[in-house]
Write a protein that binds this DNA or RNA. Sequence first.
DNA 1: CGGTAATCGAGACGGTACGTCATGTCTTACA
DNA 2: TGTAAGACATGACGTACCGTCTCGATTACCG
Lengths: 212, 212, 212, 212
Amino acid sequence: MAERSSVAVRPVGRRGPRPASAPSPRVRSAVLGAAHELIEAGGFFGLTVDGLVDSSGVSKATIYRWWPTKETLALDALYTEWSAAAPVPRDTNSLRGDLVELMAPWARLVTAQPYARVIAALLAKTRADPAFAAEYRQRVIEPRRDQAREIFHRAVERGELQAGIDLEVALDLIYGPLYLRLLQDHAPLDDAFVEAAIDLALTGIEPAPAAG
Amino acid sequence: MAERSSVAVRPVGRRGPRPASAPSPRVRSAVLGAAHELIEAGGFFGLTVDGLVDSSGVSKATIYRWWPTKETLALDALYTEWSAAAPVPRDTNSLRGDLVELMAPWARLVTAQPYARVIAALLAKTRADPAFAAEYRQRVIEPRRDQAREIFHRAVERGELQAGIDLEVALDLIYGPLYLRLLQDHAPLDDAFVEAAIDLALTGIEPAPAAG
Amino acid sequence: MAERSSVAVRPVGRRGPRPASAPSPRVRSAVLGAAHELIEAGGFFGLTVDGLVDSSGVSKATIYRWWPTKETLALDALYTEWSAAAPVPRDTNSLRGDLVELMAPWARLVTAQPYARVIAALLAKTRADPAFAAEYRQRVIEPRRDQAREIFHRAVERGELQAGIDLEVALDLIYGPLYLRLLQDHAPLDDAFVEAAIDLALTGIEPAPAAG
Amino acid sequence: MAERSSVAVRPVGRRGPRPASAPSPRVRSAVLGAAHELIEAGGFFGLTVDGLVDSSGVSKATIYRWWPTKETLALDALYTEWSAAAPVPRDTNSLRGDLVELMAPWARLVTAQPYARVIAALLAKTRADPAFAAEYRQRVIEPRRDQAREIFHRAVERGELQAGIDLEVALDLIYGPLYLRLLQDHAPLDDAFVEAAIDLALTGIEPAPAAG
DNA sequence: CGGTAATCGAGACGGTACGTCATGTCTTACA
DNA sequence: TGTAAGACATGACGTACCGTCTCGATTACCG
């Protein structure tokens, strides 16, 4: 259900030819597609509204009618891309397996293309614009955290995990290291790291002595 | 030792009237001070070169002579600020204690002022400009990681930790969650969280069964 | 007929929503008017684009959209001014009369305001920029020379002048002294001089002995 | 006798090692030579003070000590160049011959190098700076007019010319056309034109009927 | 089937900041 | 004391991108 990103829907009053509260599919796909290409070509920096006008054939006024800011648009492109590319994670019947199954494909997706730049730019925008931050949380952060929450719930049900754990901290312990490498790029974000980070998060840096 | 940001120092040999390869102290402190104020007032977005010119009394040409980009300047301001404000962490004789001692003051510093915005903006710049990324790693990331590396080394020496641990992953496990909250702001980055995250990272989400 | 300075007119055909390839009349008159005032106040030196922005209310981007350089703009202002102020010279039925009728008002116009500065600056620009030189010739020099050419043609038709004369040299002999005083300012460019110069050009410094 | 261009002389007080009210010959020739080269390479526009510093080895402070503005310096270079290159005109025992002898070499000199640009720029400066205008008149215009005045005087003495002629207008009639072509460049300033213009100025466009 | 109300393309425009460039002043140290 | 080195203020330049706006065309529903 594509609606005017981050802005309330329009009254559906039954008068006039068409209610119309979404960009035409043509416009939407032209803009998002062009945005995607521009981002791939030049990172988030390569995405300019004027450039979008040229390469999408859609006019500036139309773009601004549906996407209030460039970031909202990029967010939409990012979201669309992820939805299309991310496979539904399998249930591996183990916490570790489920987490790897969730994180590894995401890491591959996100490092294969200049999405680190986009995410970094969106986070920056987030810090300067609370309204956008809310939208970002709602459309990007929370859906992703929900996926991990679901996995943890299954682990509890399975008896693999105690119920008393602080779920939010656990989520941060899983996502944190991955995002850190994505954003700081001080070391590679590859499958090996994903597994190593998950393993270490599960067992702990300083595991309790295995007995007595 | 202030030198032209991101450029090697010059030999201090007594040749020529003045060594002069650094901004005059007057300029440096005026610019960095004004930058700091502007950032406090309006976040990274509030920092504009034109604004700096007005509020620092230093001319644009001079600013650009010493700081190639706004981000380099912000980095310099950030670094200066941290150096001045961060206390030297005490040695508490325990890994957990040392980590808390290191992280909690940083978290307080970084949340007390709009540094999240600055860091987010610098990270974004980092993704678009490899030269700046290198400088950022060298001046911000590595010094901070070194502090934690030192702590882990002490823990190994103390026998608290096995030597075989993958240090880099462990560092990410500590820093990751904190940066995630700083940047995504999905939940508070307070002392309680700092301690909880460190504890969970040390013991693990799914600790090995305490016996057999 | 205002068109984008130095660029060909567009067909006036009724195609597309708006012809629009010229500054809006509002912009054009605001900019040219402000330019005129700034020049009057401070000569060509007093004309700055930033100043224009302030005093015309038109944005810099818009100014640069229509006038590629400050000189082009000044040229436009000059041309507009001349077109508005210069009376159509009367036909006095004599070569001398026609020339005086053409030159004297121009001399008055050009000395009454700081146009000497503007012309000098435009000439200087002309020497450094061939493209601008071409435009200057086409819009300023040739139209003015055409006026005198017309006068000479009439004199030939009238039988006052032999047909064999080298017209271009004659034009230079008329315009040269006036421009020289305008630019060098070594002596006044007043009506008396205009008449004296024209008279001397017509009769010659060293007239042929009046007989035998 | 090179003195601080356009600025009062310094007291000649007999104290200190050297009175010094002129640049050292080394400085003078280095600066003027470099200026000449820069002008040849890039016209007046190519002459920048910073460039001069680089290519002359003379420091900026020293340059400004002796030449208050860039134009003064260019004027000095121009003057020096002319003095060195211009031959002393021969006395041909006829007004026409003398004038051609004076003007043709000058025209050749001035068209062979980008001096038109320099002169145009200096004239422009002249219109904006009265002090410089005075210096320009004194050092460039009047010396050149004096040469022609002398020629006219000889013609009067020789009986070739009536004494009653308005000398200043006559001078403008000779110089005007040449400068016009030099500055406007609407047609070549070559030997043929020099002679044609002088001839026409002498005999007149509309000569009195040769008899009766 | 014609009117009405929407989307849409085109692109001018104001605004803000950027980064560059050149001038001319000044300070410091050397010879 | 003349000079080299060079930092610095000043101020204009020209560019880039953003987001707003107006205009006319096209389109599609609805009565």
